[in-house]
Write a protein that binds this DNA or RNA. Structure first.
Length: 486
RNA sequence: GGGAGCGUAGCUCAGCUGGUAGAGCAAGUGACUCUUAAUCACUGGGUCCAGGGUUCGAAUCCCUGCGCUCCUACCA
């Protein structure tokens, strides 16, 4: 657990081996080495061809005059063979000084063993980097969660699965950009360092700007700046970047996380539904290789083939509680909910629940959303839950938004954005309460210049990656998750 | 925030009602020219997370601290 260099028998031995190599004329830390990726060597394997490869020694099977090593260069594993017959005497002798974890370059000829293992028979090898630290056990790899997160490089070098997951994350981000660029969206960058935090209800991280002697915050959402761009006539924009929220850490929350926000002028929430219905299948096709993804411990199959179900919040509630639900008296509703909860063995939290709205929402939370396994847009939510969004045209008590639910969890919301500056001010003032300083006057002022009707979308990229890689913890898809100082 | 659990060799883990610390892998030496979690023989390796307490005696029991994990609550 110590972060200081190990000072043990391994380190001593390796320092000695380093010295021995130097004395034999092998510089323990090499320079640029032109080579072919191991994955390509395997793919384009030609018996007898001479190639140069490089990588870390993962396993060494010493048999005296013929030795087998498993190398790993980050693209894949490959076997290298060190035979006395095939190597200059000095090279064969120096081979004995190699340890697990060392990085070497190998020049040799491609060869298939009797057991059919594609290999390279070494003719000449080069020391590229000596490892002074002993790598983790070859079979289990690094298993300790804490150590995996704190020393991700050790996790990456030993666990192929972990490394592949992060390459997959990189591809998801690349293909997300590509998809949006191809649809005519413009990628922008807005301030992360802001004088006031807006666009979400969350505690910001605070910092101090010395030159201006001014308190600053890290953004909690890019929303308000992106809408300014819509006002300015950048009609289709997106930003892919980090938000920071000064709140707790758990399996689905990291204080710094990656978000994608998309805004489309002259659109509405349905424009955003179309983007999700296009983007997610695109990611499935280009990155995952299937639209049917295994999810959770139960290995439940989630099918991302569009179109996705669209259903109004109230219709979902009626499906469960009966067509007449919203006409019933509150005490009747309460009894009915309790009875159903008992039947389904669900624990409803009813303390302080005094209205139809609150009760209905508790029912939705505990008994409806969890059962929406396949991709679903839940639309037409009560105004109270999303106070800043634009009301539905035909019913001012509802807002024209969706929550996109997959696997029983909300993945992302989409909005028909509020473009009436008077309504927006009212809503913001209501939210801010006493704290009127919290209102971003410049943002209101932007709206007063006239913002076209607009659809907006915000996706937690980490959670999207979790879904597509079948992980159930955010720390498994963030390279260096936030940890307490050890 | 509330609850439960964990921290032992480089790594993965055993260690019962308290009696001077164990295995596998890894390492060192030796044998072996088709191994692949190679095999075989011998050898070395520990601040039992840190600090305090109980005890003749603590990895083990108690307290405090640090870190992690799980459940639960909160979270546009």
């Amino acid at each position: 657990m110590s972060m200081e260099p190990q000072n043990n028998e391994y380190r001593e031995q390796r320092l000695q081996s380093m010295k021995a190599l130097e004395e034999m004329g092998f510089a323990p830390f090499g320079r640029k080495y032109d080579h072919k990726d191991l994955a390509r060597v395997r793919e384009e394997f030609v018996e007898g061809e001479t190639v140069r490869v490089a990588g870390r020694l993962l396993m060494i099977r010493r048999m005296g005059k013929m030795n087998f090593c498993t190398m790993n260069d980050g693209t894949g594993r490959f076997q290298a063979i060190f035979k006395r017959d095939e190597l200059p005497e000095a090279q064969f002798a120096a081979f004995k000084q190699l340890n697990l974890g060392d990085i070497i370059g190998v020049e040799g000829t491609l060869f298939t063993t009797q057991r059919g293992e594609k290999s390279i028979v070494c003719k000449e090898w080069t020391m590229l980097a000596k490892a002074l630290e002993q790598p983790p056990e070859k079979f289990h790899g690094l298993a300790d969660q804490e150590e995996k997160y704190r020393r991700r490089y050790v996790d990456l070098m030993t666990n192929d699965e972990s490394r592949e997951r992060f390459f997959m994350r990189s591809n998801i981000i690349k293909e997300t950009r590509k998809y949006l660029w191809d649809k005519g969206f413009c990628e922008v960058e807005t301030p992360i360092l802001q004088s006031q935090a807006g666009g979400a209800a969350a505690k910001p991280f605070e910092t101090h700007f010395n030159a201006l002697d001014q308190k600053m915050v890290l953004r909690i959402a890019p929303e308000l700046y992106l809408k300014r761009l819509i006002v300015g006539g950048m009609n289709k924009v997106f930003e892919l970047g980090k938000d920071f929220r000064n709140e707790g850490i758990d399996r689905s929350h990291n204080p710094e996380f990656t978000v994608l926000e998309v805004y489309e002028a002259y659109g509405d929430r349905t424009s955003m539904e179309n983007i999700i219905e296009g983007l997610i299948p695109h990611l499935c096709d280009t990155v995952v290789g299937t639209r049917r993804i295994e999810y959770g411990e139960a290995k439940e199959i989630i099918d991302f083939t569009p179109p996705y179900r669209r259903v109004a919040y109230k219709d979902l509630v009626k499906e469960l509680m009966g067509e007449d639900w919203f006409g019933l008296e509150f005490p009747v509703q309460l009894e009915k909910a309790k009875a159903l909860a008992r039947e389904k063995e669900v624990n409803l939290e009813l303390d302080g629940v005094e209205t139809e709205l609150m009760l209905t929402h508790e029912i939705y939370d505990k008994m409806i959303e969890k059962n929406l396994r396949q991709p679903t847009f839940v639309t037409r939510l009560p105004h109270e839950f999303v106070p800043l969004a634009k009301a539905c045209e035909d019913d001012p008590s509802l807002v024209d938004v969706f929550e996109f639910v997959v696997g029983g969890r909300e993945l992302c919301p989409g909005y028909t954005e509020q473009n009436n500056p008077l309504e927006q001010r009212k809503a913001l003032e209501h939210q801010a309460g006493e704290d009127t300083e919290k209102i971003d006057e410049d943002f209101i002022s932007a709206l007063e210049c006239g913002m076209p009707p607009t659809g907006g979308l915000g996706i937690g990229v980490d959670r999207l990656v979790m879904l597509l890689t079948g992980c159930d913890g955010i720390r498994d898809v963030v390279l260096f998750p936030q940890m307490k100082k050890a």
